[in-house]
Simulated scan of single mutants.
Amino acid sequence: MFRRRTMLTVAVLAGLVVAAPVGRADPAAPTLPVFTPRPSAWTPDYTVFPYNLWQTRVTPQQVVAQRESCQWINAQYDQLMAGVHGFQRFLGDHDDDWSAVGVSEAGDVVAANLDQSAAFLDPRAHTLFIVNYPDQSEYSPLFHGDSIYRLWYQLTRISDKITRRVPSGQINANVATANVYGNVIRDSGVCAGA
């Protein structure tokens, strides 16, 4: 007969408390709330060159995709990345030992948050890119639409590396790149008022 363990492990990651049964087999649930976009009067910034020239190529779907992505960035990006940074430090403080108490469980929660966030951004990030004919290159006709796409991609890479239980240093390259795109988006003001 199988006996379920009731012992709990706890890890604190940048204000995020993770409690999970030892030996947990179920996938971790995200701790970030499911994000729901809302209507808004926000419009893209068409004042920056060359985006002012590409305005005629922008579809209503792309405007909605960027507005909703910006709303997510304004609401959850900082909290998500605080959890990622906290976990990365936590893993490093345990000498990258995924079997240390609480490490694996905390990683699962952070990966679940990343997966939930990436799933929200995925269709929107892909809507922001268009194919340029005749050379088939991809670009976004919206200011920092490409940065949203690249941020989405880095979130998927961070989750993948956490899921594969790689050392914190290997996760760092994608964390640093996600920070670059997140900061560029925030510093540009493109999401202000979304």
Rank of each mutant, 00 (worst) to 15 (best):
F2D: 04
T6K: 15
M7W: 11
T9K: 03
A11P: 05
A11F: 06
V12G: 11
V12T: 13
V12F: 11
L13M: 12
L13F: 09
L13D: 05
A14G: 14
V17E: 15
V18L: 05
V18T: 00
A19M: 14
A19R: 14
G23W: 01
G23I: 05
R24Q: 15
P27R: 06
A28T: 08
A28V: 06
A28G: 10
A29Q: 15
P30C: 07
T31E: 11
L32I: 04
L32T: 04
F35W: 10
T36M: 09
R38P: 04
R38T: 15
A41F: 12
A41P: 13
T43L: 14
P44W: 10
Y46E: 11
Y51N: 07
N52A: 06
W54N: 10
Q55T: 13
R57V: 07
P60H: 03
Q62T: 06
R67L: 00
R67D: 02
S69A: 13
Q71W: 09
Q71E: 11
W72S: 01
Y77N: 08
D78T: 14
D78K: 14
D78H: 13
Q79I: 08
M81K: 10
A82W: 04
V84K: 03
V84M: 02
H85Q: 09
H85Y: 10
F87V: 05
R89T: 11
F90E: 00
G92F: 06
D93N: 12
D95V: 11
D95A: 15
D96H: 03
S99Q: 11
V101L: 04
V101W: 00
V101E: 00
V103L: 00
V103P: 01
S104A: 07
A106L: 03
G107T: 08
G107S: 12
D108Q: 14
V109G: 01
V110L: 06
A112F: 00
A112W: 02
A112D: 00
N113D: 14
D115Q: 15
Q116L: 15
A119N: 11
A119M: 05
F120H: 05
D122P: 03
D122H: 11
D122M: 09
D122L: 11
P123C: 05
R124S: 05
A125H: 05
H126D: 14
T127Y: 02
L128K: 08
L128R: 05
I130W: 03
P134T: 14
Q136P: 01
E138A: 09
E138Y: 10
S140I: 04
P141D: 03
P141H: 02
P141L: 02
H144M: 13
G145E: 02
Y149G: 08
Y149E: 05
R150G: 05
Y153Q: 11
Q154S: 04
R157T: 00
I158E: 03
S159N: 08
S159P: 04
T163A: 07
R165N: 06
P167D: 03
S168A: 12
G169C: 08
G169V: 12
Q170K: 06
I171C: 07
I171A: 05
N172F: 13
A173H: 12
N174F: 07
N174H: 06
N174V: 03
A176M: 06
A176S: 12
T177F: 05
N179D: 15
V180M: 14
Y181F: 15
D187Y: 10
S188T: 14
G189T: 01
A194T: 08
